[in-house]
Design a binder for these strands. Structure first.
Lengths: 260, 260
DNA sequence: CAGTGGTCTAGACCACCAA
DNA sequence: TGGTGGTCTAGACCACTGC
């Protein structure tokens, strides 16, 4: 490519903030960043194929191997899916073999994912962010947010009661009807209708006792132990886009986790 | 290496069982398997360095890149740790920056891992495996197992009550004194004293109500909600080596999980 | 300075898929 | 058959560590 084989260009723009980081950034990381930008900008939609490794290598003037390593990392982070012989595709929460990507609750009796859950939307209203919600979603207290409350049932048994808080801006126009009507994961709806792709999440899990209202909605006795799952979901660039508080019945399901 | 550059040898022994799998196994996977065998056989102890990539490449008669890819996967599975400029080291539960590798319980007030937990061993006795324990540990009902019951306290507050079941064979001779005296993670003790390295684990999490005995041991009211964490830990080759049932207080701690 | 892991390239070939 | 991702090699050079 260039006169001397190993004089690759690190004159790109790796540092936005003016902190004089003498950071050394490998080429493939820079390429990864560029692909990430295209992903964010929506150059390729979820489910679509991105350009082939050879094309990207030509575009960025690097070798295929370097593009490959960049894509390897994106694939490891589940932002992209490789399919041998076909191409590399933008990851999506829809059409994914493993039904609900972020839901770790599984029935005790082996299986994997019983059919889709029945959704029962109890509330969907505009309101102002409390201090706590604002902090989680990196908003200001009082900023507009959407709150959704719903119950998910499996095989007719109400199993999950959850509240969702969504920032008002990207989710303007979300209605209870939409939430009730669509098929598949709610995160797939977010992708299609609002262009918001959830990429990773953090959960804080506790055991709590059901209060009277919660007990009634989930069909358990007041004081019954429930799993409290607080989830913060992020889009690209670690921007939080959803706060979710779920209460899970764990009498015939359990939360499954793998440790490495 | 050989006359024609791409005629690499797939005449190794990838299939033990006589099932005629026409599986195609990449060279680097075979190399990974060979390194894994040395790891299991104890050719290099936990914390020690394994041979350099160049040495391994020479030993197996493949290129450095192929060894590299094999080690990449081992590193991704936390079996091995790379340290630039120094070498590649066998992973260990001791001397690990992140204190307890498998414990996801963290204090609510940020921090990370408060000082080491105080251990209080309540029981440590030989007994015969129940049907359920036997099934989990892939033993026969009635086979000898060790059962340990203990309470872990953080800053003086009893927080975790757990029962451990260990197969009698590799853990012969384990005593309450050992468990009480040693420093650092219990899994580090297992590595040093019994040569058993836990490599991964699966957890099933539920919310339960404390019974009278559990409540007394943890200093909570009977019926208080507790997190029930059932963990099955595996050594190499997916061999289960420990069943653990923990009850976690989550009034000032929570179970932290990351989803990708 | 030598040794180790880490990056980058260029080119060959294989496995898989669809037309 | 041609295109795509996947594997393998050989060689050059860089970054980090410790003597």
């Amino acid at each position: 490519m260039a006169p001397s084989p190993s004089s690759f260009d690190s004159s790109a723009l790796p540092d936005a903030a003016g902190a004089g980081t003498p950071a050394f950034s490998p080429l493939y990381q820079q390429i990864k960043g560029l692909i990430l930008q295209s992903l964010e900008a929506g150059e390729w939609k979820p489910g679509e194929a991105i350009p082939s490794e050879i094309e990207l290598a030509a575009r960025f003037r690097v070798s295929q191997g370097t593009v490959r390593k960049a894509i390897d990392e994106l694939a490891a982070e589940n932002l992209v899916v490789r399919r041998q012989g076909k191409g590399t595709f933008v990851a999506t929460h829809a059409e994914r073999h493993t039904r609900y990507r972020f839901l770790r609750l599984v029935p005790d009796s082996g299986g994997g994912g019983e059919g889709a859950a029945q959704r029962n939307i109890l509330e969907c209203r505009r309101q102002r962010a409390s201090a706590e919600v604002a902090r989680s979603l990196q908003l200001r207290t009082g900023d507009p947010v959407l709150q959704v409350r719903r119950v998910l049932s499996f095989a007719g048994v109400p199993t999950i009661l959850e509240d969702l808080w969504l920032p008002g801006h990207p989710f303007k126009g979300l209605t209870a009807e939409q939430l009730a009507a669509h098929q598949g994961p709610t995160y797939a709806l977010f992708e299609v209708e609002f262009g918001v792709r959830m990429v990773r999440a953090e959960e804080k899990i506790r055991a709590v006792a059901a209060d009277v209202q919660q007990a009634a909605l989930l069909g358990v006795a007041p004081g019954a132990p429930l799993l409290s799952v607080e989830r913060l979901s992020y889009t690209y660039n670690d921007v939080p886009m959803e706060l979710r508080r779920g209460l899970y019945r764990t009498d015939s399901h359990h939360y499954r986790n793998e440790l490495n």
